[in-house]
């Protein structure tokens, strides 16, 4: 009798570990998103290194089979996302920043800005710049930071990938 109880407990624990735990959402969201799953973008004054970072980051998301995508527009007033670069200082504390407007923490986004800090990013490898671009693009979708370094939404220094991981993809697909 006791053996059967232990068998049931053991089987239940194994099932929970194998099925339930992996399905727990390991992404976090900012609380807002775009109304459309197609987000238009335009670069403004990006030099070759940063155009490449942007293109690589966008390709990383578009190739990840998420239910939303970035599409180029030549119309700046119609663009949802504008990408720029400037030198803000080597120790200002950030490599790049995203600002989703009108309100980042809730509601529906209509405009986003991504700004690359060339003072901090010029010394990065091509792959690291791609990772930073993909990370910021994740914020544009509405994703927040995570601690798992295998996800592109993890922070610089912890991040070991430059392409969206499975939890990043789940996060975008939950939003769009």
């Amino acid at each position: 009798m006791k053996k059967s109880i232990w068998k049931v407990i053991l089987t239940g624990t194994l099932l929970y570990t194998a099925v339930v735990l992996p399905s727990v959402n390991a992404y976090t969201t900012l609380g807002g998103k775009y109304a459309s799953s197609t987000i238009s973008y335009i670069p403004q004054g990006l030099t070759a290194n940063y155009s490449l970072a942007m293109a690589d980051g966008i390709a990383a998301w578009n190739n990840a089979n998420v239910d939303a995508s970035f599409v180029y527009t030549s119309n700046i007033s119609a663009a949802n996302l504008i990408l720029r670069q400037d030198a803000y200082g080597v120790n200002i504390g950030w490599n790049a920043r995203t600002a989703n407007k009108p309100v980042m923490t809730s509601g529906t986004y209509t405009k986003s800005d991504i700004d690359f800090n060339t003072s901090a990013m010029d010394g990065m490898t091509v792959t690291a710049r791609k990772g930073t671009a993909a990370h910021e693009l994740g914020h544009v979708f509405g994703l927040d930071h995570v601690t798992d370094g295998k996800q592109v939404m993890s922070i610089y220094g912890v991040r070991t990938t430059s392409v969206p991981g499975p939890d990043d993809i789940k996060g975008v697909n939950a939003l769009y």
């Binding site: 600002a99 989703n100 910021e136 610089y156």
Partner: peptide, 11 residues
């Protein structure tokens, strides 16, 4: 309010 999100240089 606009909450900015960063790729921080240090954590």
């Amino acid at each position: 309010t606009v909450s900015m999100h960063f790729d921080l240089s240090e954590s």
